[in-house]
């Protein structure tokens, strides 16, 4: 298995732990990641709002880079997944395609629309598969109750993402079960984390994050896990602010998806960058630490 690796901005910057965990997990599962130092930002939904055709053109360039190497593209962020997929859909509209081609052609860039954009979550659940994954687990996360938090753009709009059920997805919960943990089902798992308005009206964004964390907690979650580093910012880096808005303690450890998988495959907390989180993951780790990792 070999992919054009699209880490996205946050995982290369303040969310570096996501990149560390992704590389660790892929190395251990034999997923080859090909680096593309030419990839640019996906626009994160903001560029789409400011200038939609520019957003499509920038992403068409990214998609063309993968296409010219004959590789499909792997994302590790729900928003990157959403924006690159959106570009593929918009390029199916002839006037959009013509406009974008007219800008890319003079740069010697051609994109014929072949690049498949797949999130690590789908690669783990559909291409590696639960059975294969189970065989590689050395530290089953038995007893740990985990609330999956999908991130909007992985699922919606469903007509464009062509995702699994946008209302009742289950791939993430299947993955959580495959590595020995217990998935927690709650309404908030498909809701918004508040991130898009974190810099517009922070208290509202914090309240939205608090609501989802409270919901996961009310359904028994010891921890949450997300395939989106932007959700991670909202749920972890700003959890203290969410607590302030909620008026009570939340104390919810939030894992990046590959951190949770890496933990089950035997990685150490340091290898997965867990000490970089704002909310300590120690309480969650204590639940699984009883199982000795075979060396």
């Amino acid at each position: 298995m070999k992919f054009a690796y699209y880490p996205g901005c946050v995982a290369q910057e303040s969310g570096k732990e996501l990149d560390m965990a992704t590389r660790w997990v892929c190395r251990h599962l034999g997923i080859e990641l090909v680096e593309f130092p030419k990839f640019s930002c996906c626009g994160s939904g903001f560029v789409d709002e400011a200038n939609s055709i520019l957003n499509v053109a920038l992403n068409a360039r990214n998609l063309a880079l993968a296409e010219s190497a004959g590789l499909d593209l792997m994302t590790i962020c729900s928003t990157c997944q959403g924006m690159l997929t959106l570009a593929n859909r918009r390029l199916e509209e002839p006037p959009v395609k013509a406009k974008v081609d007219s800008v890319l052609a003079p740069l010697g860039i051609r994109y014929s629309g072949k690049t498949k954009v797949t999130h690590l979550l789908s690669i783990l659940t559909q291409q590696v598969g639960a059975e294969q994954l189970k065989k590689r687990v050395v530290r089953p996360l038995t007893g740990l109750k985990v609330g999956a938090f999908y991130g909007c753009h992985l699922l919606r709009p469903q007509a464009e993402m062509r995702s699994e059920s946008a209302e009742e997805p289950h791939s993430f919960e299947d993955l959580i079960a495959a590595i020995g943990a217990t998935p927690v089902f709650y309404r908030g798992r498909v809701m918004c984390c508040g991130f898009p308005i974190l810099f517009v009206k922070e208290p509202t964004a914090n309240r939205i994050a608090a609501r989802q964390i409270d919901d996961a907690k009310a359904h028994g979650a010891d921890a949450m896990a997300t395939p989106c580093p932007l959700c991670h910012i909202s749920l972890d880096s700003f959890q203290n602010k969410a607590e302030h808005e909620a008026g009570h303690a939340l104390q919810m450890p939030v894992f990046h998806l590959p951190q949770l998988v890496g933990l089950a495959l035997g990685a150490t907390a340091e290898e997965l960058g867990l000490p970089r989180h704002l909310v300590s993951t120690d309480a969650a780790l204590a639940k699984v630490a009883q199982v000795a990792v075979p060396t």
């Binding site: 901005c9 946050v10 910057e13 640019s40 930002c41 994160s44 903001f46 517009v200 009206k201």
Partner: peptide, 23 residues
């Protein structure tokens, strides 16, 4: 005129600089 529009336009202009976000 608002944080929201400034953020969207700021983001667009931001990634023109390095191709990736300057957080």
């Amino acid at each position: 005129s608002e944080n929201g529009s400034r953020h969207a336009v700021g983001f667009k202009d931001n990634i023109a600089g390095a191709g990736v976000l300057n957080e």
